[in-house]
Write a protein that binds this DNA or RNA. Sequence first.
RNA 1: GCCCCUGUGGUGUAGACCGGUCAAUCAUGCGAGCCUCUCGAGCUCGCGACCCGGGUUCAAAUCCCGGCGGGGGCACCA
Length: 492
Amino acid sequence: MGPVERLKPEERRGLPELPDVEKYPMVITRFAPNPNGPLHLGHIRAALLSHEYARRYKGKFILRFEDTNPENALLEMYELIRRDLRWLDMSWDEEHAQSDRLELYYNYAEQLLSEGKAYVCTCSIEDFRELRDRGEPCPCRELSSGEQLQRWRRMLAGGIAKGEAVVRIKTNLNHPNPAVRDWPALRVTAKPHPRMEERYSVWPLYNFSVSIDDHEMGVTHIIRGKEHEVNEQRQRTLFEHLGWKYPTAVQYGRLNMAGMALSKTQTMQGIRDGELTGYDDVRLGTIAALRRRGFVPEAIKQLILDIGPTLVDSSLSWETLYAYNRKFSDERADRYFFVQNPVKVLVHKTPDLKQVRLRLHPGHPEHGERILPLAREGDALVFYLAGEDTTVLQEGQIFRLKDLMNVTLSSKGKVLEAEFQGLELADVPKIQWVSAGAVEVEVIKPDNSREFGLAEPAVAGLKVDTILQFERYGFVRVDAVRPKLVAAYAHR
RNA sequence: GCCCCUGUGGUGUAGACCGGUCAAUCAUGCGAGCCUCUCGAGCUCGCGACCCGGGUUCAAAUCCCGGCGGGGGCACCA
């Protein structure tokens, strides 16, 4: 139906246009991770969207480490995060760490205190909350700016212990959401910072440093998760105090991966307890884990961009990720034979064959060939077949050793025996096999369980990080080659 | 409890702001077939959705109201 109408192919896929682009001379976005844990799919969504938009509008993309909590920032994370971004082919035009910018935050804090737009609160958190929930000011709020500055200097000089004082931004005390009222901007911390060590003991809180940096760095579009809705309201109050224009905000919903814990806290806890093997434990949804399993960055990127910046929560299935990944892996991955739980089979009455040469990739002859040598034992050729394949086979059944020969299973006794039938391609079940020079392989499955088997000799020359397909088994990445070959499993 | 967001097939999305061309897009999934010396890939065909109820209108997935469902936030974390 609609024969003419249907021809219209102009259906635009990809991200929607960013709002307000015309209001700015240049689009500037940022990715602002807390270096307290590994990046996962959820973080990457923020990064990828921000990066993609910056590139689309020929703007600027900033990487900013939000490391203002000395309690949980981890030195190793800065580089792991950069690595993950590079792996996903993201480049950034500027890089900052908030821990380098404390003087800047202090200056603004002082300005706000002297202008009566902020105050140093020494109330206990319980007392403050009680007043706040009633919409009433705490006693500290009423003090003169001179007294505020005095308190502030005492904070900076180390005269106030952790938890004893906090700088609050004044807001409307009747704001409908109590969480927004007189929110905290800077606090005293006790632990040394991984980068700055003992140099500072007063650290800004998220909403304060984010606001200042977004303004100072000229960020035009803030793309972030909807869990920041209330934070945005808080930040707007600060922008008003300082007479700044709030950037355009774009929010997206939560991204759930079926059956996968994306939580940073849980991940870190698991690693500490030894429940998980590391940031790249194959059970995790971290970028490091996906990389380890052999997912290709383009697949992850395309999937995330296809989901786009929708405000609705999405729960992704692994199947979808697999489908995206197969598209890329299938093109690139060379093929090899692998038999899980190998079972020995003797094939009698065969021609005198020594080896067989096969293409590395069925669709790409230019990838080259591999050689599978054949082992002989007396008058028979020796093969190893996957245990599961042999249990299904019946005595008398004819099947084909793929790319080699047809045989009939003659005995399923203690040793499996078969008889040669012919070389010509036949319409019978085809199964993978290995013979001489087979290599032991350990496969790490996505649940971190192990499977063992033998692969053809050609895999011995593979390097770590190679992505390949074990035919009829799945796509894997070479995770280690010594002391033995270990492969991490991605998917079928 | 309080503040806020959201609801299109099994899943992820397009369409919604500017109602009609939407008997609703694309992908994935599932089913059938073709192709292929892999249970992978590719090709063809098929299955499958506008949360519910009102209202506005000649006309509603699209606008309004109510209900129900899902989610986020209410840290001296980010």
